[in-house]
Amino acid sequence: MSTSIDNARVIVAISFDFEAEEDAEYLTADTPDFWDYHERQYGGRRGVWRMLDIFSRYEVNATFFICAALLKSYPRACREIEKGPYEIAAHTIHHEHLDRLTPEAENEMFGHMQRMFGEFYGTAPVGFRTCFPSKHTLDFVADHGFYYDTTTRDDESPYRMHRPGRGSYIEIPRGFNGDAPWVGCPVATPLHTGRYNAAAEVFGAWRDEFDWLYREGEREQKLLTLCLHPYITGRPSRAKAIDNLLAHMAGHDGVYYATHLEVAQYFDRRSGTPAEAR
């Protein structure tokens, strides 16, 4: 492992979208999906605790993007996250589809979300992510003073995002290599297959991504982002996949675990950011 982010061969930024039932089809569909709703509750009841245990054993820094509504529905878990070496970032309030909101309603959501975090933790987060951005979302990220955002999927390295007349922030693109596309859900929905993939299959995909970046990292420092969900990876067989990955990476020199804030600050101060400002 690497002792600092500066001399790392691969920077590993693992994040969790802690959303539990706030992301359930039950809440947005015309016909509520009872099973989907309760399957996702597993993230707050059990999954997040298993992930905290695994990360503690491997001494991994990570970022938890939390839906603000969970501060009320799962306060004990949200407090436990605060105790560890983890960053707490914002993931909307109710996992809103921001592309379905009016600009006025979306702006109000941002303000209310930050107040909820401030009241619970004493300070508002500096990082933001949404799964359903509108054409106004990135402007509101700048308007509400976020230091970084991680909504886009257009690169592997951070860059400075400029919003004309509104300011700028660091954008940390997230890969499509997390648990949702590889693992699926135990309940079939329009977005998931309804089958459990074997832990070995999931681990193999993550391992191959790391190995390739580690190979390229001999020439140029690389960033691996991995977006996970407690209700998915927190299941026992899925937890084995992330445990296997952490054990695999532990056998390599030059690997550094960083929060998203640390990644943003690092690329912000580096000269010659890999991607041009946009």
Rank of each mutant, 00 (worst) to 15 (best):
A77F: 00
E104V: 15
R50Q: 14
A241T: 06
T273D: 13
T273H: 12
I54Q: 06
V60D: 04
P173T: 09
F146N: 01
C78A: 03
C78G: 01
Y148L: 08
H144L: 13
T193A: 12
W49L: 11
V10Q: 01
F140R: 14
T151C: 04
C227W: 03
H38D: 11
Y26H: 09
S168D: 12
A250C: 03
Q41V: 08
S237D: 15
W49T: 10
L191T: 13
S134Q: 06
P274R: 10
G44F: 01
L98K: 03
I14N: 00
D155Y: 05
E19W: 00
Y256F: 14
I170D: 08
P103E: 06
Y121G: 02
A29R: 05
D179S: 06
P190M: 08
Q265F: 01
H229F: 00
Y121W: 06
A89P: 00
T259P: 01
F34P: 03
E276T: 13
R45S: 11
R207F: 07
A241D: 09
L224Y: 04
W206Y: 01
H229T: 02
R219D: 13
E39W: 05
M116P: 02
A198P: 04
A124V: 12
L27A: 10
F34A: 11
P75H: 04
P133D: 07
A8D: 01
A89Y: 00
C67E: 05
S2W: 01
R174L: 15
K240F: 09
I11E: 04
V263Q: 10
L261E: 15
L27C: 10
D149R: 06
A13W: 00
D155V: 01
G184H: 07
T189Y: 01
H136W: 12
F34L: 15
I14H: 01
N177V: 15
I172N: 00
A247K: 13
A188N: 13
Y86D: 02
F128S: 07
R129Q: 07
E21Q: 06
I170A: 11
A124H: 01
I5Y: 03
I88H: 00
P133R: 02
G43P: 01
F146R: 07
E87Q: 10
F117C: 02
Q221L: 08
E82T: 05
K135W: 11
N197I: 06
T233S: 13
V187W: 08
W182S: 14
P103D: 09
C67I: 05
Q41D: 09
D17I: 02
R174V: 15
D6Y: 11
A277N: 07
Y26Q: 05
A241Q: 03
I81F: 02
V10S: 00
R219A: 13
G217D: 05
Y26G: 00
T28Y: 09
P181M: 12
R215F: 09
S237V: 15
M109R: 10
H38L: 11
E216C: 14
P103A: 11
A258P: 04
R278G: 11
R76G: 04
